[in-house]
Simulated assay, not measured.
Amino acid sequence: MAVYTTRAAKRDRAVAVFGAAGHTGRFVVLELVRRGMTPIAVARDAAKLAGFADLGIEVRGASVENPGSLDRAFKGAAAVINCAGPFLDTADAVASAALRAGIHYLDVTAEQPSAQATYDKFDKAARDAGVLVIPAMGFYGGFADLLVTTVMGDWHFADEIRVGIALDSWHPTRGTRVTGKKNTARRMIVANGRLTPVLQPAAEMDWDFPEPFARQKVVELPFSEIVVIARHTRSSELRTYLNRTALGDVRDPATPPPEPADENGRSAQTFLVEATVRNGEHVRRIAAQGQDIYAFSAPLICEAVQRMLDGKARLSGAQAPGAVFDARDYLDALAAQHHLSFVVAGG
């Protein structure tokens, strides 16, 4: 993993990262430093953060079982990024602590029940406090919402929205495996304009992705993006599909965790996400490519925090990113930073 040096602390730019000892959390801490913000690395076991302390990054210990420890850990921060799953276990406590402190809250959950519960519980409190609560601001969740919002453009309604996700491999982290065992709730899609459980067995089909993936076998497997997109986008149908290659990897207990393949600690994994939006006979598409879904979640969520602290968010409350930010400008910024490439097509 690349080594960075911190700048002088700026308390109005301080961001607490809960779960900083985890795989995604470490990427987030270093991305905050790269952007000139001041991370506060927080974990249950502060000893696991010794590498950050050696870089001059402040480290603090806290646990969701001890609300007082969270209050102390988030003191002086302007926002909290929760990277500690399963989020069904952590989101409520960490978001509650953020609201007690009167600061923004974000997480990277892929869990639909967690994202929905965060929206339902914290919207009013966040509005009253004048802050933002944005769950699922990661690869699964907020990313698809930004893509769909961009391609929707001036449309206020869609007859059908489909999101196809293709990974050349999926080497899951320990956190992903633990979350998968914990998250046994029925997965939801939008059908006939309402959130409804996906049918079992899950539908399978062929999806013609752009190169380099081309035609892939995909399975209907919705993540938190369904809840996030439905938060502010009206559609009759909203469905998500994952390619068979990735699903086979993540379901195989022998698949190893990700390994670094470059100087930034990213794995060699590549991804492509395509969203199609249909309104009558008109179809619009957007396709985005990048590297390492876990590492990519760091610039994705840190871009949101930076925009919040720069006063570029349109609303307060519990929101989807597409409702808060200029989605196309957001994707353009990620592309300019070489984290992403994307193409929009259709009329």
Rank of each mutant, 00 (worst) to 15 (best):
R194E: 15
A254R: 14
R44P: 04
R162C: 13
D12W: 14
V3G: 08
R100P: 05
S316W: 02
Y105M: 12
A203V: 09
A2S: 15
V218G: 02
I229A: 06
F213T: 01
P39Q: 06
E65H: 13
V15C: 01
A101W: 10
T184A: 11
T179F: 10
R60D: 09
W170F: 09
T255H: 06
V250W: 10
A254I: 07
V228E: 01
Q116F: 07
V198W: 04
G311S: 01
A129M: 03
F74I: 13
P299V: 00
R284H: 01
G25F: 02
T196R: 12
L30I: 02
F122H: 09
G102T: 14
F27V: 02
V190A: 14
D262R: 10
K124Y: 10
I40S: 05
A336L: 06
L238Y: 08
G164T: 09
A9V: 13
Q291G: 08
M1H: 14
A101Y: 11
I301C: 06
N243L: 03
A47W: 03
A191E: 15
C302Q: 04
P172T: 03
A110M: 02
A73W: 00
L30M: 15
D332A: 10
A20M: 01
I134A: 08
D45S: 14
W155E: 08
V94Q: 03
L340N: 05
A313Q: 01
V344Q: 14
R278Y: 06
R100Q: 13
A126T: 09
P299R: 00
E237F: 12
S267Q: 05
R174L: 13
A166F: 09
P321H: 07
E160M: 11
L99T: 10
S236A: 09
W207P: 07
V151E: 01
A73V: 11
A320E: 00
D107L: 10
E204S: 09
R215C: 11
V94H: 03
D262V: 06
